[in-house]
Design a protein around this nucleic acid. Structure first.
Lengths: 351, 351
DNA sequence: TTGAAAGCGATACCAC
DNA sequence: GTGGTATCGCTTTCAA
């Protein structure tokens, strides 16, 4: 059975151009001198037949698929797409394309996908988590010699680079901003302890307080889920304190939205009574009332680095198994109580 | 250069098992009788060497890649992932795998991706939009004979099946629910007119009113963007009417969240003063105060149908270029003012 | 400067 | 039942 979508092969081109397949291959790959004249004749034949070289055959011969696999566990896909964008950017610049699979968090599916990816001879694999950062085990399938990068998650089980946001620095940025806004009692609404990000953001919170000469008061810290409801409840909780906070740092934008809701209900003005900073820079943050100041996760940058590390492992055999922390960025909006954002030189955390 | 990740070939297996490559191929594909004894010996060799057949070589020989391409334009990825899940479900059941690419809405990227997909000899392509339904033109690249399905968008430019949610029916469901809750002045907050979904949801709104014997009053209808801010403003707008609505149907959950915000601000109880129904069943809907009744987009089902249509085109040559509308589902929560959701038999709209 | 021919790894036809 | 062998489409020495 002929390939229906593109039956024209290098032989057809060769025949039409009156040369051998070898010559056609040479003009295709620029791999050997071909006289300008024959080159033109071949090119004309290629154009006329609308010939597209069969990647499958080429891959088989060259043992190069120019393909990398991306396995995510992200049900919603919110974070995945941004990171994939970064990966694709550097991959396509090198002629590689990216194969995305979703394990939906199930190891069995991850294994099945890795199986397929290996069978399809991808040249490298990025294991990506769309969840908030946490540690994970080895790949569901032994990957042999093939380069692997962990993106938005980390592992101690295998030697592979891990790429993470600098959550500590991000949290520090957030709290610094609230300090700059003149706040002194800064509450912290955090996510579930089982996420690494939770601990790092807590650490950044503490560090920034200390750096500002403020006392760390555990009474101002609450832990819950990541979602709106949790933010709502914990804010009510904090605001009932004898000395309620004059600012709130929320470890996710969803939490911050819940907090906003509670503060509105309590009749507290944001940012005048209580300033607010979120985390993640989700799409909806800009549409809150007031628009939410938040910490942007460097998702695209993380994806880029993942792509770079993977490609340099594939192309140059460079191995790396260090932990990379990418700086977060403050997105200045109105909820934090600072009037004139110095957009030109937006604060950034370094390493 | 040998393939580093999996240097073991069918010949190695054959040698170890003391048979010919042809025999190994037969046990691999179950394509001819092989005695139980040799079959076991071969299997043992396969296991021992951890042999995985090279898909590339197989594809070349069989002109079958068992791969389909999915090209989305969805920046956020929220809807894409759910639809892809449905596609993958039916694809993997038939041994196919799915290659996801993102054009980020740029035709140039779409073209580049289609180019790669064609070169990789995918057997079919799904053009998916993560945006809300609207018409689109032909693929950025002529796809020749290869089967195509439009998912969550439609086209009149080429002969291909289109799969869409039944927005009219979904809207009808929403309004019916509000009618059932005893509401008589039902406002409608809609999205931008450039989306097809906007018109269909408007139509469903009207139909349900008429069916309930209620007058359609254009004064109760507002059009804006899809986001929270728009919902907030338009709700304020509607509530200033001399006779404000006692219920609001919002064409997206984001709009509904903005509406909720405005209603809280106005001191109107939801659902007692104003009942509320959203659309999309976004993740955050369940965490609103009160939890948001909404219309679930049948994303996974849409993906499944897309997969089925594509596979039957690939496998059985069945061609189809009809428009498929998949029923939406009412997700009963507290914002609509009906106390005891009859979960057992949740309302569904048909065709 | 061009071409003949071997081979990438697997499949499948046709003998035995 | 099992095995030799041509072949899928392309690349790549090596000779001419």
């Amino acid at each position: 059975m002929k390939n229906s979508s593109n039956a024209v092969t290098i032989r057809d081109v060769a025949q039409l151009a009156g040369v051998s397949p070898a010559t056609v291959s040479k003009v295709l790959n620029g791999t050997s001198y071909v006289s300008a004249e024959t080159r033109d004749r071949v090119q004309a034949a290629i154009d006329k037949l609308n010939f597209r070289p069969n990647t499958i055959a080429r891959s088989l011969k060259k043992s190069r698929t120019l393909t990398i696999g991306l396995v995510t566990d992200d049900l919603e896909g919110v974070f995945t797409m941004s990171m994939m964008r970064g990966v694709e950017e550097v991959a396509s610049a090198q002629g590689f394309s990216v194969f995305l699979c979703n394990s939906y968090g199930q190891m069995a599916r991850e294994k099945a996908h890795l199986e397929v990816l290996m069978a399809k001879q991808v040249e490298g694999i990025i294991l990506l988590s769309g969840y908030r950062v946490r540690e994970r085990g080895a790949p569901a399938l032994p990957l042999g010699e093939i380069p692997v990068v962990y993106l938005y998650q980390y592992t101690h089980d295998i030697h592979a680079p891990c790429i993470l946001p600098d959550d500590v620095g991000g949290a520090r940025l957030a709290v610094q901003q609230l300090v700059t806004a003149g706040r002194r009692r800064i509450g912290f609404i955090n996510g579930p302890p089982k996420y690494e990000a939770t601990h790092h953001r807590h650490q950044g919170y503490q560090e920034a307080l200390v750096a500002a000469g403020l006392a760390y008061d555990p009474a101002l810290v609450r832990t819950g889920k990541w979602h709106e409801q949790s933010g709502y409840q914990l804010t009510h909780d904090l605001m009932q304190l004898p000395e309620p906070p004059d600012a709130l740092f929320c470890a996710s934008d969803s939490l911050a939205v819940g907090a906003l809701d509670a503060l509105h209900e309590l009749g507290r003005d944001v940012p005048d009574d209580v300033a607010l900073v979120g985390f993640d820079n989700r799409h909806f943050a800009q549409y809150q009332r007031p628009p939410l100041t938040t910490i942007k996760l460097p998702l695209v940058e993380m994806g880029r680095l993942a792509g770079q590390l993977l490609l340099s492992a594939i192309l140059e055999g460079k191995s790396d198994h260090s932990l990379h922390r990418i700086p977060c960025e403050l997105i200045q909006r109105q909820s934090c109580g600072i009037e004139h954002p110095h957009n030109e030189e937006q604060a950034r955390v370094r390493q």
